[in-house]
Structures are given as structure tokens and as C-alpha cells.
């Protein structure tokens, strides 16, 4: 395990990714990736609608904080209820030992009463790296014309403690509501906090 981390570190370090991360105010990179049911999903197919991208990982305590408390499903339901597309993205290395199979993943999501428009399986990590997603959760909002409006955390208090949810500002809810009513996004970037995404190396 240690050796593998070391080896991957050595391999990746010299290239040290100047990854073309998505930038707020710029066009959001398009992608084509399969969902948990094997259907291909493209970002561009949702032109005309606001799209929320949510990086998640059921093994991460920060993700569980927002799912087990019902915060993530509630935010999701509120957005999709207003016609917003919600794409949950799972970018863990599909050959890694921390990988959850798509079926199990869907079960886990459904058990927490979450209902994303699609649950995307990004086993190669291509989409995550394209967006510069670092943590789970890591949240993005894309405008109907394909511009990135928000990138950052789900809310303002970086912790794994459920009790902090009530005290925090939910930046995604705020950004969705502002975008839907045509207002500028008051907080367009914030600190994404959580577990590091276990990318394929």
C-alpha cells in the first residue's frame, strides 16, 4: 500500500498537473460519461437548464455528514423541484480498493432518499480532473448557457460534524436560488472541504 502510494507519487509528481480546472465565469468543460445504469450522459444535453455537479463518495465522513443528516438530499430535492438538473459524480478509481460498485452506490444513495437526475460513474477520474474536483463533496453550478457559476463547498462550515449544518450557509442552495432569479452569485467560490478524491493514478 505504502509502496503503491510512493510509486504513484513519484510517477505523478514530475507531471504535477497544471490541470485545466474549470474556472468560475468560464465555459464549464463538457463531458460524456456513463451513469450507474450504463447510459451515456453528456453535460451539453442539459443546455437550457441549470446543472449542479456534486462529487460524492459514500465512504467519506463528510459526504455521510450531509447525506445521513438529510442535508444533501434536501438541497437536491429543492433544486430539482425548481427544474435544476443534479448530477452526482463518483470519481473514485474503479480499480482501487475503496471503490464502490455502481449498483451498491445507487442503493446507498437511494437509501438516503437522494434522487439525483443522474449518478455518474467517473471511474477513470477524467471528469473530476477536468473540473479540478478535489474533495468529496465538491460542488459546481453550471448556467443554462454552459458557464460555470459556482465552485466550492456545499456550505460555509468545514467540519464533519452534523451539528454545524444548521449554523452554516448553504452556498449551493444560495447560488441556485440567485441564479434562478437572475441575480449575480454572491459567493461564487468557496473552500471545498472533505475527503480527498481517490483518483486513479
Amino acid at each position: 500500500m505504502l509502496r503503491r502510494t510512493l510509486v504513484t507519487g513519484l510517477l505523478v509528481l514530475p507531471f504535477s498537473f497544471a490541470h485545466a480546472a474549470a474556472v468560475v465565469g468560464q465555459p464549464a468543460p463538457d463531458f460524456a460519461v456513463r451513469d450507474a445504469d450504463g447510459r451515456e450522459v453528456r453535460l451539453s444535453q442539459f443546455r437550457g437548464k441549470h446543472v449542479v455537479l456534486e462529487w460524492m463518495n459514500p465512504g467519506c465522513p463528510f459526504v455521510r455528514k450531509h447525506y445521513d443528516s438529510g442535508n444533501m438530499p434536501a438541497t437536491q430535492k429543492e433544486a430539482t423541484g425548481k427544474g435544476v438538473v443534479w448530477l452526482s459524480v463518483y470519481s473514485n478509481d474503479d480499480e482501487g480498493w475503496l471503490y464502490t460498485k455502481p449498483g451498491k452506490l445507487r442503493e446507498w444513495v437511494v437509501a438516503r432518499k437522494a434522487a439525483p437526475t443522474a449518478l455518474l460513474i467517473d471511474g477513470s477520474g477524467a471528469v473530476g480532473k477536468e473540473y479540478g474536483a478535489r474533495t468529496t463533496p465538491h460542488m459546481y453550478l453550471v448556467s443554462p448557457t454552459g458557464t460555470l457559476l459556482y465552485a466550492g463547498g456545499l456550505d460555509s462550515i468545514a467540519s464533519a460534524d452534523k451539528d454545524d449544518i444548521a449554523k452554516a450557509t448553504n452556498y449551493v442552495r444560495q447560488a441556485v436560488n440567485e441564479a434562478l432569479s437572475g441575480k449575480p452569485i454572491s459567493v461564487a467560490t468557496s473552500r471545498p472541504y472533505g475527503c480527498m478524491i481517490k483518483y486513479k493514478s
Binding site: 502510494t5 463528510f62 482501487g96 475503496l98 467540519s159 472533505g194 481517490k198
Partner: peptide
């Protein structure tokens, strides 16, 4: 005291 301890996975 609260700490987040991580290897690949993280445990608060």
C-alpha cells in the same frame, strides 16, 4: 479536541 485523520480514507 477534534482531528481528521486520513490515510487514503479519512476518519474524523
Amino acid at each position: 479536541a477534534s482531528w481528521l485523520v486520513c490515510k487514503k480514507e479519512c476518519i474524523p
